[in-house]
Amino acid sequence: MSSESPIRLEFCACSDVGRVRKRNEDSLAVDEGRGWAVLADGMGGYRGGDVASRMAVEVTLQCLERELVAPDDNEAERVAAVLEVAVREANAEIRAAAARDSALSGMGSTLVVAAFLADRVLTAHVGDSRMYRLRGGVLEQLTRDHTMLQQLVDAGILAPEEVAHSQFRGLLTRGLGVSPVVLPESGSHSAFPRDVFLLCSDGLTDMLDDVAIAAVLEPVESGVTRLEEAADRLVALANERGGRDNISVILVRMAA
Rank of each mutant, 00 (worst) to 15 (best):
D16C: 09
T110W: 07
A96N: 09
E229S: 12
E84T: 03
E58K: 10
I94Q: 14
W36I: 00
E185I: 08
N74S: 08
T173V: 05
W36K: 07
C14D: 15
A238Y: 04
V178G: 00
L68S: 05
V153N: 14
S190M: 06
R120A: 05
M43S: 00
E67H: 13
E221F: 01
S166D: 03
R23E: 08
C14K: 13
F168Q: 15
A214I: 07
H165A: 13
V211I: 05
R169L: 01
H165M: 06
V38S: 06
D232H: 06
V249S: 11
L134N: 07
V51I: 04
V235C: 02
Q141G: 09
R23F: 04
S188M: 06
G170P: 10
D154L: 00
D16N: 15
D50L: 01
R241K: 14
M1Q: 09
S201A: 05
A231H: 02
D128H: 03
R253L: 03
V30S: 12
M148D: 15
S201L: 03
R34V: 00
V59I: 02
T110L: 07
S105G: 13
S166P: 09
S2P: 11
G45R: 10
V87L: 15
G48C: 09
L198R: 08
L172Q: 12
N24G: 03
G175I: 03
L251R: 14
A215N: 11
R120E: 05
L111E: 10
I7Y: 13
K22E: 11
M148G: 15
V57W: 05
M43H: 02
L142Q: 14
S105Y: 07
R169S: 04
V20Q: 11
N91K: 11
A115M: 02
L158C: 07
S105K: 14
L204D: 09
T110P: 01
G33A: 13
L198N: 04
V138F: 08
D145P: 15
D195Q: 14
E65G: 12
R244P: 00
S102T: 14
V126C: 05
P6C: 02
R95P: 00
G170I: 01
G45M: 11
E32P: 15
E32K: 07
A255N: 14
G187P: 09
R244N: 11
A103N: 15
A164P: 13
G45A: 09
A255M: 12
L64H: 15
G156K: 00
G242R: 12
L237E: 05
D50A: 12
E161L: 06
S109W: 01
R8H: 03
A215G: 04
A99I: 04
A40W: 04
V224F: 01
A115K: 15
A155Y: 10
A255V: 07
S248I: 11
F116Q: 13
L139R: 10
R169A: 07
V82R: 15
A124D: 04
G175T: 09
V252A: 15
